[in-house]
């Protein structure tokens, strides 16, 4: 061990290489130790640089094959802190195995609590909904926008938070309780809930086609198609009557949907969403609900309700 002679440091390119490898964090996700393989894979450039003997290298590899699981992007600040700890240790500081494992386990829970709502429940749904609404009109910009914005945000987040973790070392855990990330989480959920309200209104579609009433219009309130003159004169007369405010049909059809829309547009989608939330809270599997809705759609269509 020659660490007294020269201090080993992780260069920017070492850290960048860890950052690139952390993309594969979940690659060997398994039911025993979850993200451990990917974590160790990401640490390899650092371990190679910091430790020179086979024994030290082997011990470090085993140390980083322990259980680990968090939201994949917030693993980056944890990687940064771990890099700083390993660097200190390689330079002779008394950093125990338990300290390193403790930092990993201690940070992964709270950070996953931030990462899941911010990334999976705010950023991705919003960007995806934006992209999807463009894609529905066959606009290629939709998927492109989603893909580019998402990945720029993700890669920048992963690099800067890893660097952040590396610089402040263990101090990051103090900062987390300082509330900065709490604010980010709250801001994200405000934005998320706002957009979700809009999406429920815009994109959940139910249409009750069932007729509530069919009223005969009084004579002279509709175009009397049977008594129009032949040829273009008839067309001319029909169009001028239509422009004059006469109806095309002799009856007024009101569907259940028309009634509901005059009350509150989007009321039924809202109720449907709230109903789904209730079922999910009662631990009904989302897949069961999805299949049930398809069955309701088919049955409702057959009986003429939907």
């Amino acid at each position: 061990m020659a660490e007294n002679a020269k201090k080993v440091e992780l260069s920017v390119s070492d850290r960048r290489s860890v950052w690139l490898r952390s993309t594969f964090l979940q690659g060997s996700w398994n039911y025993e130790r979850m993200q451990n393989g990917g974590w160790c894979y990401a640490m390899i450039p650092a371990i190679k640089k910091l430790y020179t003997t086979k024994d030290e290298q082997s011990a470090a590899l085993k140390r980083h094959l322990e259980f680990f699981n968090t939201q994949p992007f917030v693993a980056s600040p944890i990687l940064g802190v771990t890099l700083a700890l390993e660097e200190d240790r390689a330079n002779g500081a008394p950093v125990e195995d338990q300290a390193i494992q403790g930092v990993k386990v201690g940070m992964m829970g709270p950070l996953a609590g931030v990462g899941d709502p911010v990334f999976w429940f705010t950023l991705r749904p919003i960007l995806a909904a934006l992209g999807a609404s463009l894609a529905l009109s066959q606009n290629l910009l939709g998927p492109v926008l989603f893909f580019v914005l998402w990945n720029v945000a993700r890669m920048a987040f992963m690099w800067y938070t890893q660097e952040f973790g590396y610089r402040v070392g263990t101090a990051i855990t103090k900062d987390l309780s300082g509330g900065l990330l709490g604010k980010v989480t709250k801001g994200a959920s405000i934005l998320g809930m706002f957009i979700l309200g809009a999406l429920v209104m815009r994109w959940v579609s139910i249409n009750f086609v069932i007729k509530v009433s069919e009223v005969q219009r009084s004579a002279g309130a509709y175009i009397d198609w049977a008594n129009l003159p032949e040829g273009y004169e008839g067309l001319h007369q029909a169009f001028s009557q239509f422009a004059g405010g006469l109806s095309l049909e002799p009856t007024v059809v009101t569907t259940l949907q028309d009634n509901l829309n005059s009350l509150i547009p989007g009321l039924v989608p809202l109720l449907l969403t709230l109903g789904c939330m209730r079922l999910l809270k009662k631990n009904v599997s989302p897949i069961v609900i999805i299949l049930a809705l398809f069955i309701i759609g088919i049955l409702g269509h057959i009986i003429g309700l939907l």
Binding site: L199, I206, L274, C276, L280, P286, F294, G297, L299, H301
Partner: peptide, 15 residues
């Protein structure tokens, strides 16, 4: 009927 169901299924994701 499946297309109608598809319109409603979106609600599960939001929920």
């Amino acid at each position: 009927g499946m297309a109608i169901g598809g319109g409603m299924v979106v609600a599960v994701g939001y929920a």
